[in-house]
């Protein structure tokens, strides 16, 4: 009986490990860097996407987030009472102190969204990762969600739409609102407004996973004073504001 060739065995073992590593690494890297989700995989309830908006960094008169949102989602950018506006810049002035602030306002992606509660057909729904959406195939256009939303975040499509982004289907007679650029998130990108704000050098909008204690957004919420709009309603919005 011959003695086993240990060198050969070690070589085979190491080679297999390297080969396996090479095979898995691109996938691991992709997952690690981009957090994208393969098509067909359901959104995870372990994640809760949210934003922290620093009103001290947000400049009055800057509209870059709004412009980026309109471009990304194929909105006209018009501001007539019938035009859809998914995100808007709100100028605030404290009635007593006179202190002013400027901030972007959009769907607050509540944990307990009133729009989802009141929707008769279930077209308004909350995805497992906390994003509040409208199923455009199920919305009958009753507008009850618009009556129920405490943030005036929703718009009704009053006329036929043209020039749509294939990723963001829209339709006359249905209700729509900020979807946190869900199509970008699923590709592992950040929402268009976040990117535009960073590009403008303000970095007023921080986007991330509120459920991950190690994420930048969670660490920041843990260390600085932040607030939710109409916190008294106990809806626990996923959008928080700093310096309000």
């Amino acid at each position: 009986m011959s003695t086993p060739n240990l060198d050969r065995r070690q070589f085979l073992g190491k080679a297999s490990a390297v080969f396996a590593g090479l095979a898995i690494a691109p996938g691991m890297l992709l997952f690690d860097f981009a957090h994208g989700r393969p098509a067909g995989e359901a959104a995870s309830g372990k994640v809760r996407w949210g934003m922290l908006i620093d009103t001290n960094q947000c400049t009055s008169g800057c509209n870059d987030c709004v412009t980026a949102c309109n471009k990304e989602n194929g909105l006209s950018g018009g501001t007539k009472p019938t035009d859809a506006q998914w995100i808007r810049k709100v100028e605030l002035k404290d009635m007593r102190s006179g202190r002013t602030a400027s901030l972007p306002m959009m769907c607050q992606h509540c944990e307990s969204p009133p729009c989802v509660d009141v929707c008769p057909t279930g077209a308004s729904f909350k995805r497992a990762d906390g994003i509040v959406l409208v199923d455009k195939h199920r919305c009958i256009g009753c507008r009850y969600c618009m009556m129920a939303c405490p943030y005036k975040a929703r718009s009704f499509v009053h006329e036929p739409v043209t020039g749509q982004n294939p990723d963001v289907p829209r339709g006359k007679g249905t209700v729509e609102s900020c979807n946190l650029c869900v199509h970008r998130i699923d590709r592992g990108e950040k929402p268009a407004c976040v990117e535009a704000c960073a590009k403008a050098g303000h970095r007023a909008i921080l986007f991330g996973d509120l459920n991950d204690p190690e994420s930048e957004i969670s660490r920041r919420i843990h260390t600085v004073a932040t607030a939710q709009v109409r916190a008294d309603l106990m809806l626990n919005p996923g959008i928080r504001y700093e310096g309000l």
Binding site: D117, P120, I140, G141, V157, K172, G173
Partner: peptide, 25 residues
């Protein structure tokens, strides 16, 4: 008056039980 009156069948077949609108249907 609905934005999509053609989808009335959707309203008749999809009930969100937390919606008072659906109760009213």
């Amino acid at each position: 008056d609905l934005g999509r009156p053609d989808r009335i069948i959707v309203a008749a077949t999809n009930y969100n039980l937390t919606s008072v609108f659906a109760w009213n249907v």
